[in-house]
Design a protein around this nucleic acid. Structure first.
Lengths: 197, 197
DNA sequence: ACACTGAGTCAACAGACGTAGACTGAGCGT
DNA sequence: ACGCTCAGTCTACGTCTGTTGACTCAGTGT
């Protein structure tokens, strides 16, 4: 009888464990942030050995960098109105997407300096070419504000899980923020209402 | 000759070191978050001993709880327009205040579970009685959004230090967000603009 | 069939951490 | 003047961390 083919070759076995490690790392980094996530915990969840994680990915930092990449936003162009709508759909996507990938970065942003730089770069990047499409001389500030509002909304939904925000359909949220975004794009600041008519 | 009075009594010496520890703890927790801040580092910055920190404040957790209290917002009341203005000035205050106190909590919110609960409680609290002042049936969602936007703005300014947001006068920011807040208070959602006229 | 490569395991390292406890000496009540 | 109290210091324990190296053994090329 011929020697039976092994049910899993070495190469695919390797990739399977690599994937298990990556999945575990994503989940744990997203759940607990960079500092509180240990190589040992990742290995345990991936049903493998801490030493193997090191061998495959070099170090904890490298593994984090690999796992916690922020998906870059498409550049913002067109008329101010188009830009606003683009930013709104972009927000809608982030609200719909499952949190694990981006949350790892957001959670670690406040403590892990490299992560903070990454988040800042991502927001600043989108801010820059958004500002180019905006009218007015405080365009940079207004674009930054849109970035900050987006960040706050995502955080409020996925991380703080605020009432209402937690389970509202993304369209409901973007619909509510639409006047908000358009106002910021056009740059129409209002004076204080006197609150009494 | 009479025995000379000591230049610092025991009681005031005690309070002086306690204050040095508290100041150092505030700064370090705000700068590096709960996990990355060590008792040893706090003691070093306060020019004292780790053991003393333990003796005075019990444990790292207790010290953090003492230092990272979130200043509660005043309750929101009045007409919707008044509520919106109230929330705007509240935001303005947070933008003006020096970051150290609140930043400690915000920075730790993503990793320290207790801190996350505290932040969530603070936002939810303000959200609840803001929603009561709002018209419409999705008032909770809209109030939550205002909380999220506020959070994002503060984070964008003090933590990410975004261009424009970093050094803009608070009034400029609140002025830009005024139409935003009023729209959310009144609950007027817009349909998608078709972007072509 | 045989040597070798590489996946997976195990044990151990050095360092940092929170925390506990013994010790010293100066301020204070009596 | 004497003894207690307590601020401040020092050392050490136990644990957990990232990381390393030696070891085992099944899959693979020749």
């Amino acid at each position: 009888m011929a020697t039976s083919q092994p049910r899993t070759s070495r190469a695919e076995q390797r990739q399977k464990t690599e994937n298990r490690i990556l999945t575990a790392a994503r989940r744990l980094f997203a759940d607990s942030g960079y500092d509180r996530t240990t190589i040992r915990a990742i290995a345990a969840e991936a049903k493998t050995d801490p030493g193997l994680v090191m061998r495959y990915f070099g170090s904890k930092k490298e593994l984090f960098a690999l796992v916690a990449e922020i998906a870059p936003d498409e550049p913002v162009t067109g008329t101010p109105e188009q830009a606003a709508e683009h930013l709104l759909t972009s927000l809608g996507d982030k609200l719909e997407a499952e949190p694990s990938a981006t949350l790892a970065m957001l959670r670690s942003m406040l403590t892990h300096p490299e992560a903070a730089k990454e988040v800042r770069a991502a927001v600043t990047n989108q801010q820059r070419d958004a500002a180019a499409a905006f009218p007015g001389d405080d365009a940079v500030l207004r674009a930054g504000l849109i970035g900050a509002l987006t960040l706050g909304t995502v955080l409020g939904r996925h991380l703080l899980r605020l009432d209402g925000l937690r389970d509202a359909p993304p369209e409901a949220i973007t619909a509510l923020l639409r006047p908000c975004f358009h106002a910021l794009v056009d740059g129409e600041a209002e004076h204080a209402a006197d609150g009494q008519r």
